[in-house]
Design a protein around this nucleic acid. Structure first.
Lengths: 217, 217
DNA sequence: CCTACCGATCGGTAGG
DNA sequence: CCTACCGATCGGTAGG
């Protein structure tokens, strides 16, 4: 009885996870508005009501897909950077991890947040609010790493952290959707080069001389 | 008879133009996929089939809306720049015209192409093909102005025109959707500053010293 | 997790 | 440019 109940809950969690992964993948291509319960059900070999029952409404499903995507983003991009020492090395790794995440098509339609944030930037509601928070979180990650770098002397005292985080995130996000639009890896190379040069311009002389953030450019 | 036929055609053109303007406005908020014939009809006080008859299919309507938006983009952003002399002044005006276009909400949901290009970057078909061309055209405008500037000595001989055009377009586009997402004009200020600094870094010393591209930053 | 169903809306057509 | 209509699909519900 206990074991069977646990197994049921475990199956339920697996099914729920499978639905959300499929939803996040689809949303990266067609947007969160492009999701339909019927299509998810067909692709997963389930009934519509079977999919629906896990979430109670389409919007709850969409919000849960955003949560899943945020976790994947943290794992694929932020975590690799955290394995590097603070400062220039960590920032360079963050940039490379984003480019790699885009290039490997972790989501089939490119960066989940690139697609969905632009989709909802002018559509008030819970989805926009959640996506706006995700965007602020990402800027906070970059800004936090820059502040950390400044504390240890890698980044110039006078660096405008907010402006730098804006510029680095801009060129990375744009590189991702340009890569998907034209199917041309040159966009990723341009994005990486721009982000690395922006970072490089903010480094104090010793860190810059060490070449940690310069890469093969 | 002649006059009446002309009047009819003229009314038809006006109706068609009204449909497309409404479609482009709606698409800037909800995307080209968010357009429905029923909603357009309701908002315009027409019947569904009345809207439909002008285009023959939803995709033709969407393609026509892209054409209209491309014209507005040319009028609002490229044309003001063409009124300036070639070189640093023209490039600075292009940047300011984009920021102004974003700030004035020429389209209610922000830059039409920012929304729709990201929407279709991974969805093969005629819409993506047309939007990809619009994106290349925009890069060509920026690149062309940079090459022109190089010819007259405003822009450094060694400038990497493709890379510069990528960087300038990246920060402008991102500024636009960030402005809409957070409702905060700081994003526009950051985008303008980043674009102007990128431009400034590519100017030959005499043009840079003249301060044409620096603005109030 | 399923079948069977609801009213609403979708793009598109017929006929005028 | 309209009314009237088509089959398909939408999110969601009832009942199990």
């Amino acid at each position: 009885m206990e074991a069977s109940a646990r197994a049921e809950r475990s199956d339920g969690r697996r099914t729920r996870a499978a639905i959300l992964r499929k939803a996040a993948d689809l949303a990266s291509v067609e947007g969160l508005s492009g999701l339909t319960i019927g299509r998810l059900a067909t692709e997963l070999g389930m009934s519509k009501s079977g999919v629906f029952a896990h979430f109670g409404s389409m919007e709850e499903l969409q919000l849960a897909a955003i949560e899943l995507a945020a976790g994947i983003y943290a794992t694929e991009i932020v975590r690799p950077a955290l394995r590097e020492p603070p400062g220039a090395a960590r920032l360079a790794r963050l940039i490379d991890a984003f480019i790699s995440y885009s290039e490997r098509h972790v989501f089939p339609g490119g960066c989940f947040f690139g697609t969905t944030i632009v989709e909802f930037d002018s559509r008030p509601g819970r989805l926009r609010d959640r996506l706006a928070r995700a965007q602020r979180d990402w800027i906070e990650v970059i800004s936090g790493f820059l502040i950390e770098g400044r504390r240890i002397g890698d980044v110039e005292e006078s660096a405008d952290v907010g402006q730098l985080a804006f510029e680095i995130s801009s060129v990375l996000t744009t590189a991702d959707w340009l890569y998907n639009l034209h199917g041309d890896a040159e966009a990723l190379a341009r994005g990486r080069r721009a982000a690395m040069r922006t970072l490089s311009g903010a480094l104090a002389s010793p860190a810059r001389a060490s070449g940690l953030a310069a890469g093969p450019d």
